[in-house]
């Protein structure tokens, strides 16, 4: 229970910081909105409903991926002010609690953006899903966590590099490739109703479990590196 309390403390701290500044959420929200508009210029989704169903899953997740990346770098930048990160290193609390708290906070921010974005997406792209829409309630959180857990980890890893803003996408994009494929396929399956998303949800679940374990196990090494 002690561990859960540490996680909760880190989460509360991050949520409070975000509540006071609203940096990440505002940035992400406006960024994804712009991406949606730009992609609408590129593909003209309202005129071709069946094509829109085919590509919307991909567009949604690519927009979310880019948006998450803008927020992930900032989430650790906060910890570097006043050497807070060194204080974390000295603290007897488990390092992975810090990581999970931070990842949960990022997960909540990205989910909040999705909750706002999904209706906008549906309206702007004139989207009429043909599959079972409730399955999106499983796919969206799983996909978001898959992006956020690796993103938070690699943002922490790239903190100590020279040009960290370019480094994060450089590592995150290739590592997330299987997860991206799975979430895009699952979302497309729901939107078009042509095939079952079950297989892709399983792939996503396996990816999430494997990489969450790897991140939690290796975070101590990353944090305490000299």
């Amino acid at each position: 229970m002690n561990y859960a309390r540490h996680v909760l403390n880190h989460l509360r701290k991050d949520l409070r910081l975000e509540w006071r500044t609203k940096d990440s959420i505002n940035g992400m929200l406006f960024f994804t909105l712009l991406v949606v508009v730009v992609l609408a210029m590129a593909f003209d989704p309202a005129s071709f409903p069946s094509m829109t169903r085919q590509i919307s899953g991909g567009l949604l997740w690519v927009a979310m991926l880019f948006a998450a990346m803008t927020a992930l770098n900032q989430s650790w930048a906060r910890e570097t002010h006043n050497s807070v990160l060194d204080a974390h290193r000295l603290s007897p609390a488990p390092a992975s609690a810090l990581f999970i708290g931070k990842a949960l906070a990022n997960f909540l921010f990205v989910t909040a953006v999705e909750v706002v974005l999904a209706p906008i997406f549906t309206i702007f792209y004139n989207l009429q899903p043909l599959g079972q829409t409730w399955k999106l309630l499983v796919i969206l959180p799983l996909g978001t966590w898959a992006l956020v857990v690796n993103g938070t980890f690699f943002a922490a890893l790239s903190l100590r590099t020279r040009n960290r803003d370019t480094l994060l996408p450089l590592i995150l994009l290739p590592i997330s490739m299987p997860a991206l494929l799975a979430m895009i396929q699952a979302t497309t399956a729901v939107l078009t109703g042509q095939f079952e998303p079950t297989l892709w949800i399983k792939v996503l679940l396996a990816y999430v479990i494997i990489f969450t374990t790897a991140c939690v196990m290796l975070f101590q090494t990353v944090l305490s590196a000299d």
Binding site: L157, S158, R160, T161, I171, P174, M177, P178, A206, T221
Partner: peptide, 25 residues
Amino acid sequence: VSATGQTAMISAVLSIFAAIDIPIC
């Protein structure tokens, strides 16, 4: 691009992630 003292640790961690990623992919 990583800072001099950190290169080895960062790349070792990245190598492990890459090795996990390939079979899943």
